[in-house]
Each structure stands twice: as C-alpha cells, then as structure tokens.
Simulated scan of single mutants.
Amino acid sequence: MEEDDLPRPGAPLDIVIKEDLDRLSVHELEARVAVLEREISRTKARLAGARDFKSNADALFSKS
C-alpha cells in the first residue's frame, strides 16, 4: 500500500484501522467484520459505478 492510499489523519477510516482489537469480544469482532464487509461491498459498487461513468465519458469525448 502506498502512502497516498492511506486515509487522511483523523479521518474515520484512520480511526477504524488503528482501533485496539484486543479489547473486543468474539461477538464484537464478528459484528465488526460483518459491518466492514458490507462497507467493502458498498465501496466496490460505488467504484464500479465511477469506473463505468468514466469509461462512458471517455468514450463520448473520444468520438471527435
């Protein structure tokens, strides 16, 4: 992972990745994984949409 790929300091993701997991119970860890998996799915869907939009825009403007 490159430096530019890391979240901005103080950003919510920065807080999540630095959280101490040792204090969480099995149930809390399972819940955390479920929430993060849903967020990954949501983010991948948004990424796919952004890529499609960019591809369509590139195709539109390259027809000149």
Rank of each mutant, 00 (worst) to 15 (best):
V35P: 01
R51V: 12
I17M: 10
A34M: 08
R46E: 15
A50F: 07
E30A: 14
H27R: 10
A48S: 06
L60E: 13
L47N: 10
E19D: 07
E37I: 00
E30L: 13
V35G: 09
S55V: 06
S41Q: 10
R42I: 09
K18R: 15
L47Q: 10
V26N: 04
E37W: 01
A48T: 07
K54M: 11
S64D: 11
M1Q: 15
E28T: 00
E37R: 09
E37F: 00
D14L: 00
P9Y: 03
V26Y: 15
R38H: 01
A11V: 11
R8T: 14
P12L: 01
R23L: 12
A34D: 07
R42V: 07
V33A: 06
L21V: 06
K63D: 13
E2F: 13
A11W: 06
A11P: 02
A11L: 06
A57S: 14
K63M: 08
K54G: 04
A34I: 09
E28G: 03
P7H: 00
K44Y: 03
D14Y: 00
K54R: 10
K63Y: 05
K54Q: 15
A31W: 06
A57L: 14
R38N: 04
P9S: 05
A48V: 03
A11C: 09
I17C: 08
R32W: 00
D22I: 11
R38T: 01
S62C: 13
A11S: 10
A50I: 06
L24W: 04
P7V: 04
L36N: 04
L13Q: 11
S41D: 12
L36K: 01
K54L: 13
R23T: 15
L36A: 06
K54S: 10
L47W: 07
A34P: 02
L29V: 09
K63P: 02
R32C: 01
E28L: 01
D14K: 02
F61S: 03
L47S: 07
K18T: 08
N56V: 10
A48M: 03
D14I: 00
H27V: 15
A50P: 02
G10P: 02
R51Y: 09
A57Y: 11
S62R: 13
G10D: 00
G49N: 05
D14E: 02
E37D: 07
D5S: 12
D22W: 12
P12Q: 00
R51A: 13
A34L: 15
K18V: 13
E2S: 15
I17L: 15
D58I: 05
R51T: 08
A59W: 06
I17K: 10
P12N: 01
M1V: 10
V26R: 09
N56A: 12
A45V: 11
S41H: 11
K54H: 09
V35M: 12
A50T: 07
G49A: 11
A59T: 10
P9F: 04
G49F: 02
I40L: 08
T43D: 05
P9L: 04
L6G: 03
